[in-house]
Design a protein around this nucleic acid. Structure first.
Length: 227
DNA sequence: ATCCGGATCGCCT
DNA sequence: GGCGATCCGGATG
């Protein structure tokens, strides 16, 4: 795909890239508002787009589950970059995970993109996720998101407002369709309610059965992330 | 120099 | 639900 064709593919169906000001807000707000947004990756000559249905907030050095809790290192240096930066890291030796950096420079907070619905480049995503039978399983987990969209370490530190990895405005998700739960796969701060996902989405990752979850509407208004 | 555990996934039972 | 794959950052000696 030529650069012009890639630009057209992105403009055809979706809104503008989210501006830096979108990311320069409390991380819980950014996380909640990323539901419904479009993650767009141009890799190996093809654009793949996905509608985000599940995210987690990681709240900087004082959040024991956040990579910033160990300070600034070579691995996590872009987590401490300006809002709107991509932080991509390898986990368990074999998977990539992608985050959007939030708040002010050096805060060390970010939103992990955990699941999405592939809405463009479906054939490419299926090839990358060879062996997967159902489309709903293409990107229902953070490692799968990166594999389906072709996101790797080369995207670490890129700005999400432009370039080969972008976050773009999509159809907003109303409070009534947002669910909240603790985060998945961590061993510290295991009860912090910082996972947000779209109610009823078939593309959400399958958490442990006993994981508690609540409608966002039941969260007291003062504590509710909303724009 | 060595050890440990991880923001996971897919296959097995 | 259990487990192996597979590798690196960070901590410890």
């Amino acid at each position: 795909m030529s650069p012009n064709a890639a630009r057209r593919a992105r403009r055809s169906r979706f809104g503008a890239p989210l501006p830096t000001s979108f990311f320069d807000r409390p991380t819980e707000w950014v996380a909640r508002d990323l539901l419904g947004a479009i993650l767009s990756c141009h890799a190996n000559g093809t654009v793949t787009n996905g509608r985000i249905v599940e995210v987690e907030a990681y709240l900087g050095p004082d959040d024991p589950a956040c990579h910033a809790a160990v300070g600034i290192t070579k691995r996590n240096r872009h987590l401490h970059g300006p809002p709107g930066t991509a932080y991509v890291y390898r986990i368990y030796g074999m998977h990539w995970c992608v985050n959007a950096v939030t708040r002010e420079v050096g805060h060390g907070s970010a939103v992990l993109i955990r699941a999405l619905e592939v809405v463009d480049g479906l054939e490419t995503a299926r090839e990358r996720r060879r062996g997967v039978v159902r489309d709903r399983d293409l990107a229902n987990g953070p490692g799968k998101v990166c594999q389906a969209l072709g996101i790797t370490g080369v995207h670490d530190g890129l700005r999400l407002e432009r370039g080969s990895l972008q976050l773009r405005k999509g159809a907003p998700v109303s409070d009534d369709d947002v669910m909240v739960s603790p985060r998945i796969g961590i061993s510290k701060a295991i009860d912090w309610p910082l996972r947000y996902f779209v109610r009823g989405s078939a593309n959400v990752s399958r958490p442990p059965q006993r994981l508690e979850e609540w409608p966002l509407a039941t969260v007291p208004k003062a504590l509710r992330p909303s724009s």
